[in-house]
Design a protein around this nucleic acid. Sequence first.
DNA 1: TTTTCTTGATTGATCAGTCAATCAAAACTA
DNA 2: TAGTTTTGATTGACTGATCAATCAAGAAAA
Lengths: 195, 195
Amino acid sequence: MPKIGMEPIRRRALIDAAILAIGERGSLDVTMSDIAGRAGVSTALAHHYFGGKEDLLHAAMRHVLAELGGDLRRAVAGKQGIERVEAVIAVNFSPKQFQPEIVSAWLAFYVEAQHSTPLRRLLRIYARRLHSNLLYALRPLMADAVARRAAEGIAALIDGLYIRRALKDGPPDAASAGALVQDYLELQVKAERSS
Amino acid sequence: MPKIGMEPIRRRALIDAAILAIGERGSLDVTMSDIAGRAGVSTALAHHYFGGKEDLLHAAMRHVLAELGGDLRRAVAGKQGIERVEAVIAVNFSPKQFQPEIVSAWLAFYVEAQHSTPLRRLLRIYARRLHSNLLYALRPLMADAVARRAAEGIAALIDGLYIRRALKDGPPDAASAGALVQDYLELQVKAERSS
DNA sequence: TTTTCTTGATTGATCAGTCAATCAAAACTA
DNA sequence: TAGTTTTGATTGACTGATCAATCAAGAAAA
């Protein structure tokens, strides 16, 4: 039943399968055979479309990153100040992004980035964008040094809550995890007002 | 030059080598041959003393955990309230614990714990102890619900800063990472006093 | 001599990656 | 239209490399 124009369909199926496999296993230590099987094709086809395992894994990571990046861009569009920060937090704890499989995949990519320069570069770009996003929104609300620290803290809190989610430890639901970060933000803003 | 009583020496050397290897690689995906080589022995000897790879890795993790646990117990001994919380924070960002290799090893263990029940159990025990430690110290300082949230937040912040350390992102030195958590603690305490 | 420590060599399993062959739609031709 | 060729899609079978685990044998103390 081969038809023309299968390529984009297969690529997408393989990427989705890879993310799911990585998310379930919690690490990049998955076999091509597992991924291909989930996508309903042979390993040879995965190699045909992606070249090698690394390429497929990197494509999967780029997909996860682009997905979050897109959500983030849409969420902050036109927003300023505290509303903008709240939007950033909300996206990170949205049902779509805070899914256990996606969170686990993130953690796996973080680990891999430690010894893969291209992956680290990708993550660095995303981290920088998040940071400047937060900083831009926080600067009108507080002194520069405080804003920098707050941005740093929010980013770290999000990462920490992601880890704890992957381990099924910590706050069980997205809502209370998000509330915890919101609370941190409010504390910083209040402290600044009373100074 | 085999002598008697080598066992403890070799075990220790192999565990140290394993931690170093895991820390450098940033994941548990290290070979017995690598570990044994670092310890200056053959792979066969590693199997002789530890049975299998898993056992050695678990022993390494238990060692890292025991080390931090010991430091923690010593640090909080006799301390109460805010001093106790500060001691907990200080230990987590001490030069010994915040070393890049140790931090990377932690991250690797976190990842592995996602699909290893015994490892998850070990981590869970440690996490609980940390949590109740913080809670016990925070309760006199603030309302119960607030104390719980603060404990949750401090733990998540520490984890988040560990991740960022492993990725060489975020605050570069232990001091400013620790200061960030201290700042969070102070905000919570101040907010409580003014309510 | 016995016991403890140690290893080289080997085995078996797992996997990424390759390749030549198949299949079926699409495009072309008479 | 009917037949033929081309082309993209797809796979099973194979290869080579890596690695955990085993084992029987050797070397040095006791």
